[in-house]
Design a protein around this nucleic acid. Sequence first.
DNA 1: ATCAAAATATTGACAGAGTCTAAAAAAATA
DNA 2: TATTTTTTTAGACTCTGTCAATATTTTGAT
Lengths: 162, 162
Amino acid sequence: MRDPSAFLRKHGLPITAQRLAVLRAVSAHPHSTADALAEAVRAEIGSISRQAVYNALGTLVEKGLLRRIQPAGSPALYEDRVGDNHHHLICRTCGKTVDVACAVGDRPCLKAADNAGFKIDEAEVIYWGTCPECLPLAPARSEEQSPLKISESDKPTQNPSI
Amino acid sequence: MRDPSAFLRKHGLPITAQRLAVLRAVSAHPHSTADALAEAVRAEIGSISRQAVYNALGTLVEKGLLRRIQPAGSPALYEDRVGDNHHHLICRTCGKTVDVACAVGDRPCLKAADNAGFKIDEAEVIYWGTCPECLPLAPARSEEQSPLKISESDKPTQNPSI
DNA sequence: ATCAAAATATTGACAGAGTCTAAAAAAATA
DNA sequence: TATTTTTTTAGACTCTGTCAATATTTTGAT
């Protein structure tokens, strides 16, 4: 997004310092939590209320400027890459999240085998696994761990993006 | 699962009334929250603590007898259909959740276009849309609403399964 | 049947993430 | 610049889920 101000204006949204700063923070730190983004914004413009961050993220997601992903066991993450139907690959150990192109092509994921009468508008795909850095640390894995729940002791680098 | 007791024994788990009741509750009300399951169990055996429900669900998921799904914006849901790699279709309006067979086949979802060096162990797919009952209520939809977050006013049938 | 050891259930406090509300402040509009 | 609309702030609150200590139940062997 080249001109965030123009975009906000186009949608009839008042342009505020908070919204612009949140937008820049997401762009600079994709796949970050609301909390991490609030910190990033504070580093840039001094201060912002928690609610203002949630407000900004909420309306920007609603208007389609941002995308919210909510992995199991993790707070919501935000990114500014929208409209290309890409998916995500998340490390169960450190939480690192990377984008992956849709495996099936452009937007075919929207077709379920049987839609049960639903009108489907989104296919959300999350690949769970272990990232290259964490592979040597935890080669074996039992049936399931609570994903993204890192005990304070064995976390290598939480929120590596920010 | 025909004989839950045998299964528990096989895994070295003590057989408790709570675990068996939770198991039956999930079987009777698939795609329910921990809270709803607690209610169902209470209706059957009188009482159970919240923690016991979480404990039972946790260990049963861990042992592979149950599956936990955690849709964005919703508390975790549980089901007893495991091991067949099916996916889910969720109504944004009323939260109704139905099973759908994997569109691509047996377990090919495990292949991402580019695995970025990750060792992928699960592909989680959720189709978001509007169910037949809710379609007439909300024909138009803006870019995104907070999924599964139903304002008290316009919810048709929350937790229809229980 | 009974008893000791191990595991689970209960209870109540606690934590993280997010929402709600009313009042204050800032943008937009005229 | 005055007015109206919208956003921001601050703080209380809710909802899911977890932690920890104690009481209870299962187990397995007598």
